[in-house]
Simulated scan of single mutants.
Amino acid sequence: MPGLFGHGGLWSGACPCCGPEGLVPAEALPRRGLLAAVLAGSVAAAAPVQAQGATRSLRVRRQVTNDSFSGVYFRDGRYDREALRQLDIVFRDLSRAETTPMDPRLFDVMSTVARQMDASDETFEVVSGYRTPETNAGNASRSRRVSRVSLHMSGMAADCRLPGRSAVQLARLASEMRLGGVGLYSRDGFVHLDCGPVRRW
């Protein structure tokens, strides 16, 4: 499989956008708007998610907190606001106790990939979701590999795994589907998925 991803093949390591997370209780949390500067170049470049019929569902559980969501988030041609609110909490920045309206196309990417893997009834473990600019800046100050314009800050990215499934298999399929960005972190056993421009590493 050499050459499937950048950096001379399969690249191991921590997500360049992420760092250690602290534990913060799930309670009423403040919300931020999306980062317009990051979205401007990303939204138009994102590939469309394949049609999934009348409903779209997702099963996710947050690492560390065990917060979870399991159910339909899109029905009758529109996103379910309450389901999205619950997902925002699951994907929150744990270190800052802060949520943002996640881009629902990220959930479409995850749902589509799970469906294509015949894993719609399995639960994604979310390692990292939204990152505040402060969290990202802190990570960037500690590592040259941290992007200062990370899509995690726009609620457009997640680092995740499907327990019992190969991260390599998940990354390969997601990359072939060309729904957005895909990064494989084989050493830690997770995959970065986003709904931004199609790319891989």
Rank of each mutant, 00 (worst) to 15 (best):
D103V: 13
P163E: 11
A83L: 01
A114L: 05
T123H: 00
L179F: 08
E27F: 07
R172L: 13
A157E: 01
V38A: 09
A114N: 01
P2E: 14
L179T: 06
L173Y: 08
Q116L: 07
V168Y: 12
D80I: 05
H7L: 13
L173W: 08
R78K: 15
L179S: 04
R200E: 12
V149S: 15
L184E: 00
C18F: 02
V149Y: 15
D108Q: 06
F69V: 09
G19M: 08
W11I: 11
D80C: 09
R96M: 11
R59W: 02
P25H: 03
H152C: 03
V38M: 08
E122P: 08
R59Q: 05
T100V: 14
A174N: 08
S175V: 10
G155M: 02
S143H: 09
A137L: 13
L23G: 07
T132G: 03
G77N: 05
G53K: 02
L94Q: 10
E176Y: 07
A157P: 00
V90S: 00
D108K: 03
L184Y: 01
Y130C: 06
L162I: 06
S120C: 09
F91T: 00
R199I: 07
A28M: 11
R96C: 09
S70N: 15
G196W: 09
F69Y: 12
A37P: 11
G22I: 09
R161P: 05
V182R: 00
P48T: 03
G189H: 04
D80F: 07
V60S: 06
G77I: 04
P16M: 02
